[in-house]
Design a protein around this nucleic acid. Sequence first.
DNA 1: CGTGCTAGTAAGTTAGCACTTACTTACCAA
DNA 2: TTGGTAAGTAAGTGCTAACTTACTAGCACG
Lengths: 186, 186
Amino acid sequence: MTPRKTGEQRKAEIIETALLLAAELGPDRITAEAIAIRLGISQPAIFKHFPRKGDIWDAVIDWLARSLGRVWTESTTDEPPEQRLFALLDAHFAFIAAHPAVPLVLLSPELQARHPPLRQTIMRLMALFHTELRQAINAGPSPPGNADQRAWMMLSLVQGIAVRWALSGHAFDIRAEGGELVRLVW
Amino acid sequence: MTPRKTGEQRKAEIIETALLLAAELGPDRITAEAIAIRLGISQPAIFKHFPRKGDIWDAVIDWLARSLGRVWTESTTDEPPEQRLFALLDAHFAFIAAHPAVPLVLLSPELQARHPPLRQTIMRLMALFHTELRQAINAGPSPPGNADQRAWMMLSLVQGIAVRWALSGHAFDIRAEGGELVRLVW
DNA sequence: CGTGCTAGTAAGTTAGCACTTACTTACCAA
DNA sequence: TTGGTAAGTAAGTGCTAACTTACTAGCACG
């Protein structure tokens, strides 16, 4: 029998593996068996920890929302005000670079169709990111004009860069190129 | 028996329906049966026209690539040079507004995993769009600096807007808001 | 008017994948 | 030491969706 682990350990491993595989296959093509093989356990063992497959997505999304929230708020602690926006965006890019599946999970229409709760979380996360961006924009030496709209613009730009990075097969350094493009706009 | 149509007519209908359903369910969740029901014919009839399901995607992607190419080149005919960029982007947004599934099909990692040829077409299309953007940028009263990078920035912004529009359930007017954001950046 | 072609149908077959059942074994606590 | 709990397994079940087979029927043309 395979080495036994505690439920909490296995749950964490399953979540981690789901994110890993999501980057390779697309989030909606992950099977319980694929996760099990990757972890060296049998397929039904997965369902011991997450009775329905949707529960895995609940857990992944929960982890994602927590992590992103933490990344955003912690990035803006003690920067000089005009750097707050860049620090926020850099932290975001760094997180995506470390977890390439993040944009795929958040943006997958297939997963949203199969798993409706995802949609709400995404809208909440986008609103939260928008708020953080707006605050960072207002904190800096802002050009005149609509900070709200500028924040939406930055949000779209960041999402677009992330999507392009995923499509290209991670062919460029998203943190470096993202930072450049963001500064170019500003 | 259902009214008979020519093969060409049916093929066109199937492609159109696939795009319609892609916007509702996500591209990788479309079934041959869903298309058949929508068209009022039986499921095997689909396979008369497209022996493998992947053939439908080949046709959809081909239509998409042609249409986008046409939209881009035809938008830049007789504008005053400084308006060329905005005309190009407006044409792009208008096309997406008319065919909401376009960004989903192009960006679906599930579909890419299932149907590898898609990936190449996407990269080609992105490169083409980038070229068009760069030319439009160079044609206008360009600020100093890297037109190449500006074109990537615009491309990312446009993709980000399209993705956000799709995620929001088409909750805003992409042509109007896209135009505003693009002008804000410029 | 009939013959060949092609769009269509009903009723399969097969494969993949979520999930179940019935059992086994590791591990901790009384 | 032992007995309950929880992690694990092998071998299913059932559903969904791609694709097949064998047949039927419109339609253009000689």
